[in-house]
Amino acid sequence: MAASAHGSVWGPLRLGIPGLCCRRPPLGLYARMRRLPGPEVSGRSVAAASGPGAWGTDHYCLELLRKRDYEGYLCSLLLPAESRSSVFALRAFNVELAQVKDSVSEKTIGLMRMQFWKKTVEDIYCDNPPHQPVAIELWKAVKRHNLTKRWLMKIVDEREKNLDDKAYRNIKELENYAENTQSSLLYLTLEILGIKDLHADHAASHIGKAQGIVTCLRATPYHGSRRKVFLPMDICMLHGVSQEDFLRRNQDKNVRDVIYDIASQAHLHLKHARSFHKTVPVKAFPAFLQTVSLEDFLKKIQRVDFDIFHPSLQQKNTLLPLYLYIQSWRKTY
């Protein structure tokens, strides 16, 4: 089996927390979720979201995140109150960019949308954001926290390059993509939290790379249903696996070995980020709550012996909000 052949990389499970039942964490995340308004986002309300009498641009960002990046939404709820709305805006910006690729039928249209967001970032730093909910909220975040323009532009530029429907040539190319998107998002989150620390940035770099790799793995069944495969070609070739094997949902050992190798790289990034947690300011830990969902996925895929098409991998963990709150309460990542 794939797991038994390579099992030495995987460390002990961390979500089991001995003695936790003896201490009762304060009510927090679930209460916040219940208090949030929840009407559906419609095209009509989106168009009017920044106008008078609408929910408001902040509510639009929150709803977009809740629907399109639920794990990011849950993590954002546990940030300090003064930072929450800015991170909602930042993550909503990322969602807007991420959904361009799947929402257009022609690359030219995707490039036009990316050009809109490039100009939007430029206009935000000229205090002239367009009348668009996410743009307005992002402008507020930039003004409030003096966010670095370079990180925002890196996210747009990398998403634009990724409009080509090509597999990553190697794991390094996937890591570079993750660094310029997910890690950049974390650098900006640290700025919102008021953290300027080399060790925190180092952790953000590795956690962002782990996030990018896990996202690529999780999306494999969806991409396969659209006749697309984006997994690193070098690892596929190493194990003699073709793109057609993934399109046919082949579950042979060599296919699972490909998934094992890729998942192991995410695991190593996560492990390395945690190896120097004592040197990272505690104030930075809330920015890294996504490690909970990353670890949850890596454990699940290990349990199914790296069968990327196993139905259990597509099921939401209903206990994730609780695990996130516990992680926040324990002040760790």
Rank of each mutant, 00 (worst) to 15 (best):
A263E: 01
K253S: 14
V282F: 08
E106Y: 09
P321F: 04
R274A: 03
A284S: 09
K316M: 09
H199Y: 11
M153Y: 12
C216T: 12
L188S: 12
F297D: 03
L147K: 01
W151S: 05
L294R: 02
W151R: 08
C236G: 02
I213F: 06
P130T: 09
K283M: 11
C75T: 12
L217V: 08
H277E: 09
G224L: 14
L79G: 09
A284T: 06
P133R: 08
F297K: 02
K101H: 15
F288L: 08
R274W: 04
D127H: 08
R330K: 12
K300L: 09
F246K: 02
F306V: 00
L270Q: 00
N170S: 13
T291P: 02
A200F: 01
Y325L: 14
Y60T: 06
T57F: 15
L322V: 11
N128S: 14
L294A: 12
A200W: 00
K67E: 10
S85H: 12
D261K: 10
T279N: 12
N128H: 14
H310Q: 04
R274D: 01
S85V: 13
A89M: 03
L190K: 01
K107G: 13
W117K: 00
Q211L: 15
L190C: 03
E137F: 02
M114A: 08
S264R: 08
L247T: 06
S45I: 06
W329E: 03
Y73N: 00
K119Q: 12
G53E: 08
L324A: 08
K107R: 10
A167E: 15
T291D: 01
L77S: 03
K331G: 10
E82Y: 15
N254H: 15
W117M: 05
I213E: 00
Q132R: 09
A284G: 08
D69G: 01
A203R: 02
N180V: 06
K300R: 14
R248N: 05
F288H: 00
P286W: 11
Q265T: 14
C126K: 15
V46I: 15
E106F: 08
E122M: 15
A49F: 15
W329Q: 07
L97Q: 04
D69L: 00
H239V: 00
L97W: 01
R91S: 05
V95I: 14
L188T: 05
T57P: 13
L298K: 01
E158I: 07
Y168G: 01
V292E: 03
F93Q: 00
I109P: 12
S45M: 12
L217E: 01
P133E: 08
G240C: 11
T332I: 11
H199G: 07
K119C: 06
V121T: 03
A98D: 05
R249W: 10
E71I: 13
M153I: 12
L90S: 02
M153C: 13
S242Q: 05
A210W: 00
A219H: 04
R227N: 11
G72F: 09
H269F: 02
Y168Q: 02
A200D: 01
Q99A: 15
Y187L: 13
A263K: 00
L90V: 10
K67R: 10
I207W: 01
M153V: 12
I259N: 00
P80N: 10
L190V: 02
V280L: 10
L289R: 06
D201K: 05
I195E: 04
G53F: 14
S205L: 06
Y222T: 07
D157A: 15
G51W: 09
R303H: 12
N146R: 13
L74G: 01
K107W: 09
D307M: 02
G208A: 01
F306M: 03
A81V: 15
A178Y: 02
R66P: 01
S85Y: 11
D296A: 09
S183N: 03
A266K: 00
R144I: 06
R218F: 02
H145A: 06
H277G: 15
S312G: 10
K118F: 03
R66E: 06
V100T: 14
D165T: 11
Q315I: 09
T148V: 04
T189I: 15
I207R: 00
N254I: 11
H269I: 02
K161P: 03
R226S: 09
L268F: 08
S225D: 11
L247D: 03
Y125D: 06
A178I: 00
H131Q: 09
D165S: 15
E63N: 13
K149I: 04
R169F: 12
D157Q: 12
N146P: 04
Y187W: 10
R113Q: 11
A141C: 15
Q327A: 11
T57W: 11
S83K: 15
I192C: 15
L231T: 00
R159P: 03
L185D: 01
C61P: 07
A135W: 01
Q115T: 10
F246V: 12
E173W: 03
R66I: 05
Q115D: 12
S205P: 00
T318C: 14
E71F: 06
I235N: 05
E173Q: 10
G53A: 09
Y325F: 12
H269S: 01
L79A: 15
I259Y: 00
L294I: 13
L138W: 00
N176W: 12
R144W: 04
